[in-house]
Simulated scan of single mutants.
Amino acid sequence: MIGKVQALAQLPDRGSAERAAHAVVTTLSERLPSGLARHVAAQLPPDMADAMRRTRRRCPARGDRVLGNHGDSNHGQGVRAPVPRRARRASGSG
């Protein structure tokens, strides 16, 4: 995977590709809802999956927010992800 990152991003060395890949995985793990982050981690090579899981443990709640668009009134502060209808029905709140 790192070789593909290096080639596609035209990075000069493997170390640069590793840093770039880890930065992407870290950012994704901070932003994705926890279920989706676990799904993505399960498809990654072990070292990348471990990096994603470590980040999730450090900031578990951050990824469960949906970031607003730059042009909206939230200015990227994040809003709670909508609860699916069947989850609302199961909890008796909708």
Score class of each variant (00 low, 15 high):
residue 51 A to D: 08
residue 30 E to Y: 00
residue 52 M to K: 00
residue 87 A to K: 09
residue 52 M to C: 03
residue 26 T to V: 00
residue 21 A to T: 04
residue 44 L to V: 08
residue 40 V to L: 15
residue 44 L to H: 05
residue 34 S to F: 05
residue 93 S to V: 14
residue 16 S to F: 07
residue 66 V to H: 07
residue 22 H to G: 10
residue 16 S to I: 07
residue 19 R to L: 08
residue 53 R to V: 13
residue 28 L to M: 11
residue 24 V to R: 02
residue 37 A to D: 08
residue 64 D to Y: 04
residue 58 R to H: 05
residue 31 R to K: 06
residue 20 A to C: 10
residue 93 S to G: 04
residue 88 R to T: 15
residue 86 R to K: 03
residue 43 Q to M: 10
residue 74 N to D: 14
residue 62 R to Y: 02
residue 43 Q to T: 08
residue 31 R to G: 01
residue 60 P to V: 06
residue 81 A to M: 07
residue 57 R to L: 14
residue 65 R to C: 10
residue 16 S to D: 09
residue 64 D to G: 12
residue 18 E to N: 03
residue 87 A to N: 08
residue 29 S to I: 00
residue 73 S to R: 15
residue 52 M to I: 00
residue 74 N to T: 15
residue 54 R to H: 09
residue 17 A to K: 05
residue 52 M to T: 01
residue 41 A to V: 04
residue 42 A to Y: 10
residue 33 P to W: 04
residue 75 H to R: 14
residue 10 Q to W: 01
residue 37 A to H: 08
residue 31 R to A: 05
residue 58 R to T: 08
residue 56 R to T: 06
residue 38 R to E: 15
residue 27 T to I: 01
residue 31 R to S: 06
residue 5 V to Y: 02
residue 62 R to F: 03
residue 37 A to L: 09
residue 16 S to K: 04
residue 42 A to D: 14
residue 70 H to L: 13
residue 3 G to A: 07
residue 78 G to P: 09
residue 5 V to K: 00
residue 23 A to F: 02
residue 66 V to P: 01
residue 64 D to E: 12
residue 84 P to W: 06
residue 55 T to F: 04
residue 48 M to P: 10
residue 1 M to T: 03
residue 90 A to M: 07
residue 9 A to S: 09
residue 58 R to S: 05
residue 19 R to F: 09
residue 62 R to W: 03
residue 11 L to A: 00
residue 20 A to P: 05
residue 59 C to T: 15
residue 94 G to N: 10
residue 19 R to I: 06
residue 55 T to N: 03
residue 89 R to G: 02
residue 29 S to C: 01
residue 24 V to H: 02
residue 10 Q to P: 08
residue 15 G to A: 13
residue 51 A to W: 00
residue 64 D to S: 13
residue 68 G to F: 12
residue 72 D to G: 09
residue 68 G to L: 09
residue 73 S to L: 15
residue 79 V to Y: 14
